[in-house]
Design a protein around this nucleic acid. Structure first.
Lengths: 109, 109
DNA sequence: CACACTACTTCGCGATGCGAAGTAGTGTCA
DNA sequence: TGACACTACTTCGCATCGCGAAGTAGTGTG
């Protein structure tokens, strides 16, 4: 029961959320998520997720050369991505509140 | 992004929670979880999870014959199980609130 | 020149939820 | 009697997905 398993299916949502207000490239999103509290997120997971979201048609991408390091592959939410963010945000909240009920439950006679 | 993926790692917790107030057998726990809102939980998943929790030393088990059907394999939380329920409940809450922050985030300047 | 940091990719593994199928016991309904 | 449905559990193999490790490559620092 480490956070690894909890992340399953949620990392998509987390990446979409991290892109809501601003485009970002992989390494940066990794930092955003870790800063936000998902400290144990692996780098390969984030890169993989971004690629998956892109393949699913939820993100657009463009490469920007950097003078202080390798090029950066930026990702941005497209309309489908925003819709999906909305949608899975709701699914998540529903799920989370169901779990909270379960955990709070105590002879609900 | 169906609930299947969200369940990963949480089903353990859900089963432990379902056993908190009362012993139960697989089929019954399946119903408890579905009634609680986890409508899409598969039966094999629950049986498998219970076996896993048992093998992990978190549950005890005993078989009770039934006059209205096949025998029932009851499971009960032991002290280790209760401890684990506490522990992963906290992990879950922490994780959930991190996610909520992420989803709520909006140029937190 | 070794090292560290940034930035991304590829590879294969492991955990876990799931559907499908099978086995069995009971009851219902034609 | 035979078909079916519900209960109750098991086994099997699949698919998803996060991860660590390794590799490549660019930049800057001691």
């Amino acid at each position: 029961m480490d956070t690894t398993q909890l992340l399953k299916g949620v990392l998509d949502l987390a990446c979409l959320a991290a892109l809501r207000d601003e485009d970002g490239y992989g390494y940066d999103i990794l930092r955003r998520l870790r800063t936000a509290g998902l400290t144990e997120v692996g780098d390969a997971s984030v890169y993989g997720t971004l690629r998956r979201l892109f393949n699913a048609g939820l993100l657009t991408t463009y490469v920007v050369p950097s003078d202080e390091g390798p090029h950066r592959k930026y990702y941005a939410l497209n309309p489908a991505g925003r819709a999906e963010l909305q949608r899975s945000g709701k699914v998540w909240h529903g799920f989370a509140s169901t779990m909270d009920d379960l955990l709070r439950e105590r002879e609900t006679a």
